[in-house]
Design a protein around this nucleic acid. Structure first.
Lengths: 213, 213
DNA sequence: GTCTATACATTGATAGAC
DNA sequence: GTCTATCAATGTATAGAC
């Protein structure tokens, strides 16, 4: 009697075993490594399988296709990626809130550069696989926060800046240290090791000056 | 007697005809379109050939390989891309010079978004084909300008900011509007049309505040 | 669940007629 | 110079033994 037919592909039917969860995790980890470094088309299942230390057919036993694997990665990342923005609190001190957001973003860039590059690859190539996420959850969140920022401006608590451009410039400056690390490294030589420390000081100073009413 | 054997591949031997130059230009234009949108591996010679309106073998008559085509694109772009930074003048007013640089960068992002994305694709994927350019001409130029900025700081003409991070933040904020256009569009709705005008005002204001001594 | 073998599609590049 | 036909390599995915 096929009790062990609880194939990962049919997730709805049965709870995955510990082994299955670990393999799945290892594959996702390997996929993140390869996709983030080479983009979707640049990555091959061979590379991912080797990185995860299993055979290609075995990999395809856990994930139906290359597309499915990539989609799973993106979906799993969205929440973590947007959390720093979601955490901005309307009741806190505006400048403190925004500077804390910048610091969180920078820490994310330092700790999870591969995730950042995965998104960057996607968006530069016109987000063929994540348009929905962009127009859905992210758009809603940005709408909510731009309104909050505008309210702070109207209350005279921060200088009058365009809320959208403010958010874009925070995204750009923080993610730059993950996405364009190769360039940063080529330009900075000795200072490279300390880049996140010095960047944090620089960016907090920068945005504080801009936001002071 | 083969008078017409002046094949483009053997460029050193003979001056290319007008037709040859035009075809070459059309191919490079098509290649830029496709490479910038899909990255090196994501692009196919079929796509580029179709975009340039010729057959794949004919394309390969003008360029020896996909690699060669990509290399030619990158090489031809470097100069245009670095010119705004090179134009910063040590004798001008520091804040005026830097703000003018920001405006030039933003205009480049607006006029040549594909070039920006081509570079971005390269660098995110660890610049496998342009490490040399990064460590060569670009590094030299950045070294030169960081020294100039430091001199301005020492003279008390601008506020004391880390010159490297200043340059990075200018790159990040300006190129963001080209590289992440898909995201910008998804977030901005009505304001999207005017994005470069409002961005210019926002960024000039931002960096002016930061640089004022 | 995992592997070997292989089917099948895509793609970079070449051969050779015109 | 340009095309049709084709090759060789690569890469996604499946079949089927164990």
């Amino acid at each position: 009697m096929s009790k062990t037919t609880s194939q990962p592909r049919a997730k709805a039917t049965q709870k995955p075993t510990r082994i299955q969860r670990e393999k799945t995790r290892a594959i996702l980890e390997a996929a993140l490594e390869v996709f983030s470094k080479r983009g979707f088309r640049g990555a091959t299942l061979d590379m991912i399988a080797e990185e995860a230390q299993l055979s290609k057919p075995n990999l395809l036993y856990y994930f139906a296709s290359k597309e499915a694997l990539h989609a799973e990665l993106l979906a799993g990342l969205m929440e973590k990626w947007l959390e720093p923005l979601a955490q901005i609190e309307q009741n806190g001190d505006p400048i403190t809130e925004i500077c804390a957001y910048i610091e969180r973003k920078l820490e994310l860039a330092e700790e999870y550069p591969r995730e950042s590059r995965l998104f960057a690859n996607e968006i530069i190539q016109e987000a063929p696989r994540s348009k929905n996420a962009l127009n859905g959850y992210l758009k809603e969140l940005v709408d909510e926060k731009t309104i909050l920022i505008q309210r702070w401006i109207d209350a005279g608590k921060i200088a009058p800046v365009d809320p959208h451009h403010l958010i874009f410039s925070i995204w750009a400056t923080t993610q730059h240290y993950a996405d364009f690390d190769t360039q940063i490294q080529a330009m900075m030589d000795e200072g490279y090791e300390q880049r996140f420390i010095t960047a944090k000081a620089y960016l907090v100073d920068l945005f504080t000056k801009v936001l002071k009413p």
